[in-house]
């Protein structure tokens, strides 16, 4: 799954930076299951076609509806420079079915160290 373009953006009331992205494929349940390896996924499956939310604490949050080709991403602004690339990589790496997540996990650890250092100094 790839991000085609950023549709709009705004600074939210909580200080996060929201970007809406257009994707090249519709969101699926399998995609959110995949995201679940990297953070917490919550869902309201009976709302609309199914509302899903993925949160990677201190990094970003993704919201979307199954079948939709747009997602709303809220970045923690202070570490956006580190996490934006990971978001693109995370989406582009997704394939249906079983996946080898080792490269992604390695990248996650690396970005995580930079995020922790920037936010907490450790």
């Amino acid at each position: 799954m790839r991000i085609l373009r950023s549709v709009r953006h705004k600074v939210c009331a909580d200080g996060s930076f929201m970007k809406e992205f257009l994707l090249d494929a519709p969101l699926t349940r399998d995609f959110f299951t995949y995201l679940g390896y990297f953070g917490q996924v919550e869902a309201l499956p009976n709302v609309g076609d199914g509302f899903y939310k993925f949160e990677k604490q201190e990094w970003f949050m993704i919201k979307g509806f199954l079948g939709d080709t747009t997602i709303e991403v809220r970045f923690r602004k202070e570490v956006m420079d580190f996490t934006t690339d990971f978001l693109y990589f995370l989406l582009a790496s997704y394939r249906e079915g079983t996946m080898d997540l080792s490269v992604l996990k390695q990248r996650e650890r690396s970005v995580g160290e930079r995020v922790r250092k920037h936010l907490h100094g450790v």
Binding site: F32, Y37, V41, E42, L44, P45, N46, V47
Partner: peptide, 14 residues
């Protein structure tokens, strides 16, 4: 009201 009715059925699929 529909959202509220479904809010309590929030599930974690992963």
């Amino acid at each position: 009201r529909e959202i509220a009715k479904n809010a309590d059925s929030s599930v974690r699929p992963s």
